[in-house]
């Protein structure tokens, strides 16, 4: 296994300095000096600064922004669709479980007629109102979180 000697390191340091001097001279547009090594590195630095890269399309910004906007919209919509499906599935499952567990008894006992007494009627209206308000609140909070 070979080891680097002080002489190697010194030689490499000199070479590195020539590379860096050439780079700075090219950036600054300095006139050509007498050092052959630096002059050769200047030619290399010049080639590196004039590389033939493929140009980016003139409509790159517009296309990129449009794609990002589209993907953001799709991502947002897919979350909503997923939540909607999950809620519907949950509802169907809950209904099925109820029917299985109570053997249809509960369904028969359900009554959608208005309550007879005013006190009970007010209580029912208030509890349903609270439920509606809760739904609206949850929807509004979800929308707020989604916008952020």
């Amino acid at each position: 296994m070979s080891t680097r000697t002080d002489l190697d390191m010194e030689r490499e340091q000199r070479e590195w300095e020539a590379q860096e001097i050439a780079l700075r001279a090219e950036r600054g547009g300095a006139s050509a000096g007498g050092d052959t090594r630096v002059a050769q590195y200047r030619l290399i630095a010049r080639a590196l600064r004039n590389q033939r890269l493929d140009p980016w399309p003139s409509d790159f910004v517009a296309r990129t922004v449009a794609r990002v906007a589209l993907e953001a919209r799709i991502a947002s919509e897919s979350v909503e669709v997923w939540l909607e499906r999950a809620l519907v599935t949950l509802l169907v499952l809950a209904g099925a479980v109820t029917v299985l567990v109570y053997n249809g008894e509960t369904l028969r006992e359900l009554s959608f007629t208005l309550p007879e007494s005013t006190a009970v009627g007010l209580q029912t209206i208030m509890s349903w109102g609270a439920a509606v308000a809760a739904c609206v609140g949850v929807s509004w909070a979800f929308e707020l979180v989604r916008k952020r």
Binding site: T36, R37, A39, L43
Partner: peptide, 15 residues
């Protein structure tokens, strides 16, 4: 490559 350094090099002609 770092061992060899030629006597002269015309940067502009090479460019």
């Amino acid at each position: 490559s770092i061992e060899q350094v030629p006597d002269g090099f015309d940067l502009e002609a090479a460019s």
